[in-house]
Amino acid sequence: MSDTPRRALITGITGQDGSYLAELLLSKGYQVHGLIRRSSTFNTGRIDHLYQDPHDPEARLFLHYGDLTDASRLVTLIEKIHPDEVYHLAAQSHVRVSFDEPEFTGNTTGVGTTRLLEAIRMVGVDCRFYQASSSEMFGATPPPQNEDTPFYPRSPYGAAKVYGYWIARNYREGHNLFAVNGILFNHESPRRGETFVTRKIARAAARIARGEEKFVYLGNLDAIRDWGYAPEYVEGMWRMLQADEPTDYVLATGTAYTVRDFVQHCFAHVNLKWEDHVKFDESYLRPTEVDALIGDPAKAHDILGWKAQTMPDQLARIMVDHELGAMT
Score class of each variant (00 low, 15 high):
5 P>R: 03
9 L>K: 04
10 I>T: 09
11 T>G: 02
11 T>W: 05
12 G>H: 02
13 I>E: 04
16 Q>T: 05
25 L>Q: 07
26 L>A: 01
30 Y>W: 01
32 V>M: 01
37 R>L: 12
43 N>P: 00
47 I>C: 01
48 D>M: 15
49 H>R: 11
49 H>F: 10
50 L>K: 08
50 L>T: 09
54 P>G: 07
57 P>A: 15
60 R>E: 08
67 D>I: 11
72 S>T: 15
74 L>A: 11
79 E>P: 00
79 E>C: 06
88 H>F: 08
89 L>P: 07
94 H>E: 12
95 V>Y: 00
96 R>L: 15
96 R>W: 13
97 V>D: 14
98 S>T: 06
99 F>A: 05
100 D>N: 12
102 P>C: 00
105 T>N: 04
108 T>R: 05
108 T>I: 15
116 L>K: 03
120 I>K: 02
123 V>C: 05
124 G>I: 01
128 R>M: 02
129 F>S: 04
131 Q>F: 14
131 Q>N: 15
133 S>K: 01
142 P>I: 09
143 P>L: 02
144 P>Q: 09
146 N>Y: 06
147 E>Y: 11
148 D>L: 14
153 P>K: 04
154 R>Q: 13
162 V>P: 04
162 V>F: 03
172 R>C: 06
173 E>R: 07
175 H>W: 14
179 A>W: 01
179 A>C: 05
179 A>I: 02
182 G>P: 06
186 N>Q: 12
196 F>I: 11
202 A>Y: 02
209 A>Q: 13
217 Y>I: 08
218 L>V: 02
220 N>E: 13
225 R>T: 11
225 R>N: 12
227 W>N: 09
234 V>M: 04
247 T>S: 13
254 G>D: 04
256 A>S: 13
261 D>K: 07
262 F>Q: 06
267 F>T: 07
268 A>W: 01
270 V>T: 06
275 E>A: 09
275 E>I: 03
281 D>Y: 12
285 L>R: 14
286 R>G: 12
290 V>M: 11
290 V>C: 12
294 I>A: 02
294 I>S: 02
300 A>W: 00
303 I>G: 07
306 W>Q: 01
313 D>K: 13
314 Q>Y: 03
317 R>F: 08
318 I>C: 02
318 I>G: 03
320 V>H: 07
323 E>N: 09
324 L>A: 00
327 M>G: 11
328 T>L: 14
